[in-house]
Design a binder for these strands. Sequence first.
DNA 1: AAAAAAATGCACTTCTGTTGCATGGCAACT
DNA 2: AGTTGCCATGCAACAGAAGTGCATTTTTTT
Lengths: 137, 137
Amino acid sequence: MDTIVIFLESKKVRPTAMRLLVYKYMAQSNVARTLGDIENAFAKADRTTLYRTLKTFEEKGIVHQVDDGTGTIKYALCEAGCNCDIGRDLHLHFHCNNCRETTCLTEHKIPQINLPDGYIAEDMNLVIKGICEHCSG
Amino acid sequence: MDTIVIFLESKKVRPTAMRLLVYKYMAQSNVARTLGDIENAFAKADRTTLYRTLKTFEEKGIVHQVDDGTGTIKYALCEAGCNCDIGRDLHLHFHCNNCRETTCLTEHKIPQINLPDGYIAEDMNLVIKGICEHCSG
DNA sequence: AAAAAAATGCACTTCTGTTGCATGGCAACT
DNA sequence: AGTTGCCATGCAACAGAAGTGCATTTTTTT
């Protein structure tokens, strides 16, 4: 528990009770979560608080947004492999068509793409949909 | 005009006035459009009609959805290079951070990605964000 | 012309994301 | 300890897009 407090402080985020809970929830999830997921997990917490908690976490490089094409934004903890701090999160995401969960494949980077003349790439997002290891087994 | 009628009929879509207008609008746009865009273009038309027109077009393989990460679904005409009919739309999309328009790069296919064991790919979506040829010139 | 089928339009709902404002709690300072 | 001020929290309300149900109009078919 203390380690989380220390971690949050190192990111310049005040370790309030709510934030600790949200962080722990994210840490024990190994998939990306929507605001709604978190809302359901903590029935008593206010949506706005959770919303702003995620915003804060995002600004401070604790979580990153995941757009998996489902139409609702998801969030996942930044990890060693994820260079969100640099602003370039180039690992890819996998969305399972069966269990509907989205996982970060932090090891797998997006390959080099060569664009037509005049196009300048600044950021990219690659989502692969299919069956995850859990559901295919 | 007649060519559009014939085309729509070949796709088993009845060529109503509204649908011809929407098709022509999509054809003259060289970028992906949201429902809202179309709504604005035809002030007198009802949103639901346009909504269902796009749904119909999508089902019949006339347009395909584009998810460019802006949070609102866009639509673009299917073209020669686009294999939407097979259910696999593997070309990539470019979203300009300057003019906010999204274009299909039908020529550019998503490269082969090898996934971890147990993951089975069925579909994928790659969006590149940056500056488009118009804005970089 | 009548019946059937399909398209359109209206109203309304839901879901997500977002902001403004009031309140409450913690922290620093006197 | 008391006061001040910042930051977090909670409530309410709004905005935008997606989607549904039903009545009405248009088109096709018989």
